[in-house]
């Protein structure tokens, strides 16, 4: 109940902070982008709009997760709104989980609206939408689940600006972790090879959540892969939130 109260409040705060304006931006990018691409592509525009929409969801969702997430706990301490909250019979883990779930609810709503808006737009343009489009959108949400958890962790550790820079680096690098395992031959036998390969297994691989090209091009994706990625995202997120709770547990506010 208390977790829910904190989550509801976080959701309400973000909505009233006009975070949902990002939806308008998304709509604008997809519509203008599709018009522009329509002029240069022949017969591929529906595929490109689908691709653009899924990429847009990922980017705009990540912007919310990073910029709102990294200030989530820090802002409460900085603005001292946390004083009267911690003085309630509320465990600190309930506060962190509540803040996390509140932001997740918002991101879920945003992704849902974006996928609905883009699906309707594609249908209007004469394209076809199947359930894989929505599964791809859901995997974007699963990726943002992880990005949000990482952002919340950094909001208990550092200032929002520093946190946003670090998480953004994680986000960009997390889409290219493949380079750590596909090392050139010069790395053979050097100490850096096992270190970089170790990093590949430790760092979250955001590219795993990306089934955009498969969905756009009609390449089949197995349900077992989708299930594996969902579990992967939940486990990583749980680990980061656990770390955030540990950091916040003994923090003086």
């Amino acid at each position: 109940m208390r977790i829910l109260a904190v989550a509801q409040n976080t959701f309400r705060e973000s909505v009233r902070d006009k975070v949902l304006y990002v939806l308008l931006l998304f709509a604008g990018v997809v519509i203008i982008g599709s018009k522009a691409i329509g002029w240069i592509s022949i017969g591929q525009d529906i595929k490109i709009i689908k691709d653009l929409s899924l990429a847009g969801m990922s980017i705009f969702g990540a912007l919310i997760a990073i910029f709102v997430g990294t200030s989530l706990v820090y802002k409460e301490i900085d603005k001292k709104t946390i004083y009267t909250i911690i003085a309630q019979p509320l465990h600190r883990y309930e506060f962190v989980i509540g803040k996390y779930l509140g932001l997740l609810a918002l991101i879920f709503g945003v992704i849902l609206l974006m996928s609905m808006m883009s699906a309707i737009y594609i249908v209007i343009l004469g394209g076809e939408i199947n359930h894989w489009y929505f599964i791809a959108s859901f995997l974007v949400f699963m990726k943002l689940l992880l990005v949000t958890a990482l952002s919340v962790l950094f909001s208990t550790l550092s200032s929002p600006i520093l946190g946003a820079i670090i998480v953004f680096c994680f986000y960009v690098f997390g889409h290219a972790t493949g380079v750590l395992i596909d090392l050139p031959r010069q790395f053979e036998g050097s100490w850096s090879k096992p270190v970089l390969e170790g990093l590949y297994y430790v760092l979250p691989n955001f590219a795993n959540f990306d089934i955009r090209s498969e969905v756009v091009n009609g390449v089949p994706v197995s349900y077992s892969y989708v299930t594996y990625i969902i579990i992967y995202g939940v486990l990583y997120s749980t680990f980061f939130i656990y770390l955030a709770i540990l950091m916040f547990q003994r923090k003086d506010v």
Binding site: N9, R12, E13, R16, D17, K80, T81, Y83, T84
Partner: peptide, 10 residues
Amino acid sequence: PEQPYFYEYL
């Protein structure tokens, strides 16, 4: 608290 701070949007 000495100077109570609240959620301004509530």
